[in-house]
Amino acid sequence: MKSESEHQQQTQADTSHQSENKAADIQQEVGATIGQPFVKQPKMQARHVDVFYGEKQAIYDVSLDLGKNEVVALIGPSGCGKSTFLRCMNRMNDTIPICRVSGMITLDDEDIYAEDMDPVLLRARVGMVFQKPNPFPKSIYDNVAYGARLHGLAFNKAELDEIVITSLQKAGLFDEVRDRLHEPGTGLSGGQQQRLCIARTIAVSPEVILMDEPASALDPIATAIIEELIDELRQNYTIAIVTHSMQQAARVSQRTAYFHLGKLVEIGATNQIFTNPLHELTENYITGRFG
């Protein structure tokens, strides 16, 4: 990775430069990313990603890694492009006709935007949990079994049962729905629905899980359960989570990335970002001065 070393040099240069003129205007300040965008054991790597919606550019030259078994939180004010970036990681943006992605994103060193990468296979490997719980209007069982059936992961009823039950257990929902697996998933409470969606995602055994504000529509108790769950899921999966809650980012993630106006401003270890941000914009955001 030749571009990577260049990028790092640039980043360091920018860090020193940045401390000198803090008062410069914001647009200039959002230069190259500062912090540590790259890790030793990357699961997914994004390099120089630009995203355009028609003529409008939504993401500017974002490069970062998602490490194995780590939770990366993407934070930033509304409209900063963090959700857009997340949706590039499993090519959900393909469904938007005017959306164009350039740069490179890899999963285990495979280019996910390569000609021979099948988006269907990619999305089975990189699962996604959405902001609003969106269970199918089917039974709880069918919701979780859907992916397994779709990809032919189970060869008989017993195997399918096994997948459904383990997934529900991993999502911490099984004990609550044990007796009503065949009732509609839409009859659950909001928090339960979101855990059902997580169970549905992990039923296809993805390698990476992308979460787009998974707890923003939930009450604090349901949120706490989801957060605990994310921490447990880290043992087996690589997770990227978009969140508006700074506390949530601080609680669940190992690394945090701060986006501003489509640019990745700063990325680093979560405790460093929250205790000692390097960039003024990051500091302003996490101390609640704007955003």
Binding site: M92, T95, F130, N134, P135
Partner: peptide, 17 residues
């Protein structure tokens, strides 16, 4: 609702599915 489409696509259903 588009959320249903996203859910299906997110799990790896093809567009036709």
């Amino acid at each position: 609702p588009p959320s249903i489409r996203q859910a299906a696509l997110g799990i790896g259903a093809s567009r036709t599915q």
